[in-house]
Structures are given as structure tokens and as C-alpha cells.
Simulated scan of single mutants.
Amino acid sequence: MTAPALPELEIPGVYRIENISVKEGMPLVLDMTRAVYPHAEVYGDYITVQEHIDVPPDELFEYLSDTRSLGEWTYSMRDFAECDEEGLWVSDDRIGDHTKIYTRTIASADARTVDYHCAWDQGKHLWMIYLMRVIDAQVVLNKPGSVVIWTNCRHPYYDGNAYPETAPEGRPVWVGDFWELFYAGHLMELRNLKAIAEYRHANGQPIKPEWMK
């Protein structure tokens, strides 16, 4: 069955084949395709990195679902300890000198999504959200392994600490100071994940190490 042409979709700025032909729409698409893009347009409010990892998706998902895995493949999160609140972990974020970072991992095995809810200094409002999805590469690329897509949204608190009373005295930086470097930093970390996981898989080792189990 074909959906009827609904009057409520006749809204300025909504382009559908019912109101704009392919010939008319092509110039609009071409105008949106540029050889050079402004940095703020690409990395302003959202950061997304992606990578193929030659590891079975279920095994990679299991590894990422354990918060402690961040202590291996991230650049600066170390020394994880579980808090009194179940599922909440605290660790050192060494990019922020003497900074504690709190993390809760929310994962869905059915969708293979892994969301890290984090915050510097305090664990009551985890506003830094890192959204990851592990996809079966056989489905999307017709080859073994996984595709990992990682997105970060620019929460307003990146522009200013909403909980200054919890910050360590004399810390010279705020996490949002690094936003312009997030794309490169996340890509480096994703490549860390790729290197670690592929090394273990190639050498017959479990992706999630025994000490995590």
C-alpha cells in the first residue's frame, strides 16, 4: 500500500517527491555537498567517529559493556573502582590532572548499544553521554567483524562547569576546553580499541580478559 499525500506534511522545508521532482531536488542536494566544510559545521554540536574492527560483534559488545574496559582503550581513564551505588564506577581522568570521573554503563544486548553516562567531579548528574553501537560488519560491509559507531553530543555543560563546588582546587582545565579536539581524540581511542581487540582475537585470546570476569 502507498501512504497518501498527507496535508500535514506540506510544511515549508519538508522535501518529498510529492512536492519536488528529482530534477528540482538535485540542485538542492548538490548545494549541500561541498569540497570543504567549516570546522564548526562538522564538529559543532555532534562528534561521530566510526571504525571497522575485525572481531565478532557479540564478543566486542560484551567487552565494551564492562565499564572497566575503558581503563584499557581510552587515553586517560584509569584505576576504576565501583562506588557504593550499584553500577556506578569512579576512576581517574588523567587528562584533567587530579580529576575523578564517574561512569555508569547502559547497554542493550539486543541492539548492541553501549552508552557511557559520565561526569567529572560528581556522580549525581551524569551529563556527558557517549553513545556507541556495535554492528555486524557482515550485514553492512559483507565482511567479518564489527562496525563501531560512536557519537557524542555537545551538552551545554561542556561550555561551563555547572558544579564548580565539586571541582578540585586549582585545576587549570575543564573537559569542555577540549571539545575542538574531541573528534581526533575519540578517533585515536577508537583505534586503540581496534588494536587491542584485533590483537587478542588474532592470538586466540578472549576479547574481554579473564580479570574482568
Results as ranks from 00 to 15, higher is better:
G160T: 13
Y43M: 06
D110Q: 09
G13V: 08
I135Q: 04
I17Y: 05
S108H: 10
Q138R: 07
W127V: 05
L141C: 03
Y183P: 05
C83V: 04
E86F: 15
R78P: 02
V134F: 00
D97Y: 13
E24V: 07
H125R: 08
E41R: 01
F178D: 01
R78S: 11
I53W: 02
P156C: 08
D97W: 06
I11N: 05
I11M: 10
M212A: 12
R112N: 02
V147C: 01
D54Y: 09
I20Q: 14
Q122F: 03
Y37R: 00
T33R: 13
A3T: 05
K194C: 04
T2V: 08
V175S: 11
E198A: 06
V139G: 01
A137F: 00
D58S: 14
A197W: 07
P164W: 00
L28R: 14
L88N: 04
D159I: 11
I101R: 09
E51I: 14
D79G: 09
D115C: 10
P38S: 02
L141F: 01
Y37W: 02
E198V: 02
K100S: 10
Y46E: 14
P168H: 07
T113A: 01
E82G: 10
H52W: 13
R34I: 04
W120M: 06
T2H: 04
C118N: 13
A107H: 12
W120C: 10
T2K: 07
K208F: 05
L64K: 03
V114L: 04
V55M: 14
W150V: 11
N19W: 05
A195E: 12
P209H: 01
H155Q: 11
G176P: 00
V29P: 15
H186Q: 15
V173E: 11
T2S: 09
M188E: 14
A167T: 10
S108T: 12
P172T: 05
H155N: 13
S76I: 08
S21N: 06
L60H: 05
S76E: 13
P38W: 03
A162G: 13
G170K: 09
T33C: 15
D136Q: 00
V134D: 00
L126I: 00
N152Q: 06
L70Y: 02
L131C: 08
H155V: 10
T74P: 11
Y102N: 00
P144W: 04
G170E: 04
V147P: 02
Y75H: 12
I53H: 01
M26S: 08
F61W: 15
I149K: 03
D159Y: 09
R171P: 01
A35S: 06
F61E: 09
W89Y: 15
A197Y: 06
G170Y: 07
I20P: 12
T113C: 00
Q122P: 01
G204M: 03
A109Y: 03
T99E: 03
T103K: 05
H186L: 13
L70D: 02
Y46R: 15
Y130W: 06
D93E: 14
L193T: 08
A40P: 00
K100A: 11
I196S: 06
L28E: 13
E51T: 15
R191E: 08
R16V: 11
R68P: 12
E210I: 03
R133C: 02
H155E: 10
I95S: 12
H52T: 10
I20A: 11
Y37F: 01
L60R: 00
E82T: 09
Q205Y: 11
T74E: 08
M132L: 09
T74M: 04
R200W: 02
D66V: 12
G25Y: 15
